[in-house]
Design a protein around this nucleic acid. Sequence first.
DNA 1: AAAAGTGTTATATAAAATATATAACACCCT
DNA 2: AGGGTGTTATATATTTTATATAACACTTTT
Lengths: 120, 120
Amino acid sequence: MIFEIDFNSDEAFYMQLKNQIILAIATRSYLEGEVLPSVRKLSEDIGINMHTVNKAYTVLKDEGFVRVDRRGAVVAVDINKAEDKKLIIDELKIIIARATLKGIKREEMHALIDAIYDEY
Amino acid sequence: MIFEIDFNSDEAFYMQLKNQIILAIATRSYLEGEVLPSVRKLSEDIGINMHTVNKAYTVLKDEGFVRVDRRGAVVAVDINKAEDKKLIIDELKIIIARATLKGIKREEMHALIDAIYDEY
DNA sequence: AAAAGTGTTATATAAAATATATAACACCCT
DNA sequence: AGGGTGTTATATATTTTATATAACACTTTT
């Protein structure tokens, strides 16, 4: 899996990377137990600093998507994280609010959900 | 409608306010054409700086949720904003990726969508 | 055993984003 | 005339983001 940073985006680099890794795990480009690239190699490959990659990995660890040991960052999704679901639902509410106001109807949203789930 | 800032949150104040206003518009606590509180009054009410409220209003204007004139910020949703839908869908993909990995099944997501749409 | 590769920590620096504070301006409405 | 709009300008402080070097303890490979 190749990750890519949009240097013109207003989204923080570590955040772009973090989201791309979550997408990669969800779409099974990375499987449970698989080791992500080392911070040094990945930072060279995508052209950002080692510490920025490390920050993405650290956040992924804190949010329960990877486990980090001496071998590197290992995909290890931890379903049981108390506040996670509530947080996701709150964010979902805001996105749907934006979607409705932008004219995305309920049926369209359901279709969208199905399309995305089919990818995963 | 009373807005509230969580001063302990790591989310920017203007962002919290922006999202709450979008939710208020979606749930029809504010109707098309209605005038939002003035930047000065709202800033006093919720305890943040005038310019921070102004930034929220400016972003809301740029994203097509309000129109700003001499009377103040007026709710005016502009459906036709080219890249908006794509942006929303991209964000939705990430949230659903997180949701699936946290064990939220497709059916649960559909139920969630319906629940939120019913509020709107 | 030596070398190379892990994440991690520390220190430093620079730029950008966030938030506040004062002040003033043009405009509108009573 | 006075008080209410958003807006603009300037200034300052803090936090976040990103980079750069360097070193450390540990593991894996050679």
